[in-house]
Amino acid sequence: MSATLDPISSGRQAVTGLIEEVAKTNPVHAKKLERFLMALGDDYFEFAGPFIHRIETYLTARGHTLEFAVKCYLNMIADVTMEHVRFLRSGRYTSTSFAEVNERVYGNPKVMSYYMHGLLLSQVLWAHHYKMLRFFHSGLEKRAAGIKHYMEVGGGHGMFLADALGMVKGGETFTMVDISPASLEMAQEFVPHDPRTAFKLADVFAYEHGEKMDFITMGEVMEHVEDPVALLARLRTFLKDDGRVFITTPTNAPAIDHIFLFTSAEHIRQVIHAAGYDIEEELGIWSEEMPPEQLEKNKVTLLYGAFLKPRLS
């Protein structure tokens, strides 16, 4: 059947199938997904169909199914719900140090398994993730000319890198640096084979790279570290003076592996400026729909993204 469908209808069918699978166990969450995703345009469904197919291919190669990934995703959603309850009661994230998170998540294979698969589905099921991806595309397109050396730090499943490979036509090297073996393994599956890419298992604070970068991407990493100013400042050491950085990070986003609490977009801007950058272009996307005056009051998550340029002294 799906072979006869156009890409938009095929994508719509694939997304609907995922939402129906979610609804079997968590109808509350399925309701939100349906409301947010079905309101997106045809471009979303054109993206979603092939992406879900890639996820399915990846899972099949490991003896898993999409249903397994949905179960993992729902475990992650239960974690997020519980963390949110605790966050609203305390005003803090439950973990405040890397050591805590390492013991609780990164060093726990059972948690890591469902968490990685859950995060993978969130890339296609969370509307604010998709909107941020579009912002990344439009911003990178404007800056692509002249990029020879491209780096991504904490690349997760590798989707940003895969897209950059297609968009940065003159790119000579594309390096992903990630501290997690599981992330690197997943990225190497997801990013199409290309001799210009290199995957480096390393802590970015210890990593050294000879060539200075024209562009560095770091999606949703700053909330995972104790000192995001130091992290952004570390990126500066890899960057050419006329280079650019793209970052994303959420405010008020309790999760089992989030450490640093950004309370507002302004808080993120302060960290960016303290690390020695100016903001060229930015976007904030709320994760819930409600009247503007209620968004901050209810501590709704805002996904913030920005293109940065180093401040030259």
Partner: peptide, 22 residues
């Protein structure tokens, strides 16, 4: 009854419901 049957019972309101029940 599920979330489909109650207007406004979405994931954000669900968090407030959990807290109110607790």
């Amino acid at each position: 009854m599920t979330a489909k049957d109650v207007e406004g019972w979405d994931s954000f309101a669900h968090i407030n419901l959990i807290m109110a029940l607790e």
